[in-house]
Amino acid sequence: MTPQELHQDAIVIDGLIIANWSRAIFEDMRKGGLTAANCTCSVWENARGTLDNIARWKQFFRDNADLITPVHTTADILRAKQEGRTGIILGWQNLSGIEDQIPFLKVFKDLGVGVMQMAYNTQNLVGTGCYESKDGGLSDFGREVVAEMNAVGILCDLSHVGSKTSEDVILESKKPVAYTHCLPSGLKEHPRNKSDAELRFIAERGGFIGVTMFTPFLAKGIESTVDDYVEAMDYIINIAGEDSVGVGTDFTQGYDQPFFEWLTHDKGYLRRLTRFGKIKNPTGFETIGEFPSLTAAMLRAGWSETKVRKVIGGNWMRVLKDVWGA
């Protein structure tokens, strides 16, 4: 089977995309053979702002029904594959969208939100982000949030979450949790990257690791290639095992500098948290439409067809089914 044939046959899932959503992006998803993706619809927004974003997604589904379809279950992902469309999992990168209302979790779950990150870079009512100087861990309110997310079937994401809060969530959750998009600090020291110990800790407790190709966090920065991205995946696989790892690109396709300014300031407008510098995706994998080149790079690295199928999407299917139910 050629790399292109394998890519076309496999379930291909991206654990995190935060693109500037448009029909052009959805067309690129189809070009890339993307079966499904966790698509960010809330970062700093409150409940009303998040509802506005979800309403926009409902319009996207109506206007682009030939290209995308909403995902509530893993059966919806299989249906998307059969129909040649991309399944859209709505996801959050912060829990500011529930404000202080735990019942809102079920409301947003019913609207199609299947993944929520506990905190985005800084402190919220639930816990601490990775750019805070002190990590106070999961709050008691946060423990109730985790229990409700488990009950309604929402995946707890820890990608931008502080180390202590992440550890608390991993231990508190009765369902698998995930770093949907991260890289190892063993290859590059960065507040957003995870240590070998953190990667091992989540994997040993049934958690999951999606690997990002965001070049500011890769060892070679903007000089990175798709092969460097696969090398980072292998680094994590050597720690966590090939059954616990998937793709979480963090594609920001279509956005300009003001968007990154919004992302990198606390609450979108307060203190600066970090500077990314020039942002360029890895050579050979610069757009969503180039997803087949990732499969080719995996094979080029000596991966077996079985390993490719697991990491490119099969592992995501398993963990999402564990969290969401049948």
Rank of each mutant, 00 (worst) to 15 (best):
M1H: 08
Y235I: 01
A151M: 01
V71E: 11
D196S: 12
A147G: 03
G254S: 10
R205S: 10
T35C: 11
S139L: 03
E167Y: 09
P70V: 05
R275F: 03
I54Y: 06
E5V: 09
R30L: 15
I239L: 14
G97W: 07
L299F: 09
Y235S: 03
T74E: 12
G49I: 03
G127Q: 07
Y255N: 13
F60H: 15
N281L: 02
L158E: 11
S173H: 04
G112Y: 09
L273S: 04
D256T: 15
F61T: 02
T40Y: 05
E242Y: 09
D63H: 02
N38W: 11
D14C: 03
I68V: 15
Q253I: 06
A47R: 09
S22F: 08
R318T: 15
F60R: 00
L16D: 04
Y229L: 02
G129S: 03
D168R: 00
A75T: 08
T249C: 13
D52H: 08
W44R: 00
N94K: 00
V226G: 02
A80Q: 09
D14Q: 04
R30I: 14
Y269P: 00
L67K: 01
V152N: 01
N193A: 06
A55V: 08
F61S: 02
D135I: 07
Q117Y: 06
L299D: 11
G206T: 04
P258K: 01
T74V: 15
R23V: 10
E144G: 14
G221H: 08
P70E: 13
A151Q: 08
S166T: 15
P292N: 02
L105C: 07
D110F: 03
T40P: 07
K194A: 12
D266M: 04
E27M: 10
S133G: 00
G207N: 10
G254T: 10
K134H: 13
P3W: 06
L187F: 02
A19M: 03
R192S: 06
G207C: 11
K58E: 15
H181V: 00
T74Y: 10
S96F: 14
H265G: 03
N20K: 12
F251G: 02
W92D: 07
N53I: 01
S22L: 05
N193Q: 01
Q93E: 15
A203V: 12
T165P: 13
D196T: 14
E99A: 12
N94M: 02
R300I: 00
T306L: 13
T249F: 10
Y235R: 05
G284H: 05
E148A: 08
W21Q: 14
V247Q: 04
K310D: 13
I11M: 11
S163G: 00
G221E: 13
